[in-house]
């Protein structure tokens, strides 16, 4: 299979004040595949993810150096709008974070901001994205329910649907299953495996098993450096770097 590059990260460093979270790393992210990012706490996984949709910009102390090319265009170029970027690069957070409104309104939050008003179109988006997130059957009769009333696993799938509703090209997931039970986790993983046909997916996870289950490629981060990246099967069976080997076999981290 030909590997088409969706995002090319070139010598990316991220600083928060004086603290350097990422140390000039470079990697290419393939389109329509799932990239798993593993590594111990404070290895820069989340900072990396949030650099890809410029969520780090929310912290006034933060600063990025290097280039991040999305389909060849640098997202940090002064002419690029962060708001437009986030329509193309969606994000699901570690904790399920529905907005305090109905299930329906959560899903159409992004589309409405983009100016979609037609009820039939919005209805279609809601059904399609909730189906993609494996949640439709559980909530189709109560779309006006306050989203906070759903269970944690349902909330997280709602958040996934909400991100998909913007029709992004890339979906970033920041430890999306860290607070979920195994069944909810399995549902999310099933959804991701289907969704990669349509989206480029980047999954940060603290759970190396999860990476080995769902990721096509895996990158191992350590202390703000990219130690190694490759096909998931290779990373987990014949890693090139001793530190990767130690981490995936559970000897440290």
């Amino acid at each position: 299979m030909e590997r088409k590059v969706k995002i090319s990260v070139q010598n990316l460093s991220v600083f928060f004040g004086r603290h350097q979270a990422l140390r000039g790393l470079s990697l290419d992210i393939a389109a329509n595949r799932i990239l798993g990012i593993i590594g111990p706490a404070s290895s820069g996984k989340t900072s990396f993810l949030r650099a890809l949709n410029r969520m780090n910009d929310l912290d006034p102390e933060s600063r990025a150096e290097g280039r991040v090319l999305l389909d060849g265009a640098d997202i940090y170029h002064p002419s690029q709008s962060a708001v437009q970027l986030r329509k193309r690069v969606g994000m699901v957070f570690a904790l399920p974070m529905p907005l305090p409104m109905s299930i329906y309104d959560n899903v159409v939050y992004g589309p409405r901001l983009s100016g979609v008003r037609d009820r039939a179109t919005l209805d279609e988006i809601v059904e399609r994205t909730l189906t993609s997130a494996f949640l439709w059957d559980e909530v189709k009769d109560r779309l006006n329910l306050l989203a906070l009333r759903l269970s944690g696993g349902q909330q997280q799938r709602l958040c996934l649907a909400r991100t998909l509703a913007m029709d992004p090209e890339v979906v970033l997931l920041d430890e999306p299953c860290s607070g979920l039970d195994p069944i909810s986790t399995a549902r999310i993983e099933d959804a991701l495996s289907v969704l990669k046909a349509r989206y480029t997916i980047i999954l940060v996870t603290n759970n190396t098993k999860q990476a080995s289950r769902v990721a096509d490629e895996t990158a191992f981060f350590l202390m703000g450096d990219l130690v190694e990246m490759g096909e998931t099967s290779q990373i987990f069976t014949v890693p090139k770097d001793q530190r990767t080997s130690d981490y995936v076999t559970g000897r440290f981290g």
């Binding site: 929310l58 437009q84 329509k87 969606g90 974070m97 913007m166």
Partner: peptide, 9 residues
């Protein structure tokens, strides 16, 4: 809430 809203463009 602000982060989520921001991430949804």
């Amino acid at each position: 809430y602000r982060e989520v809203s921001c991430s949804l463009a």
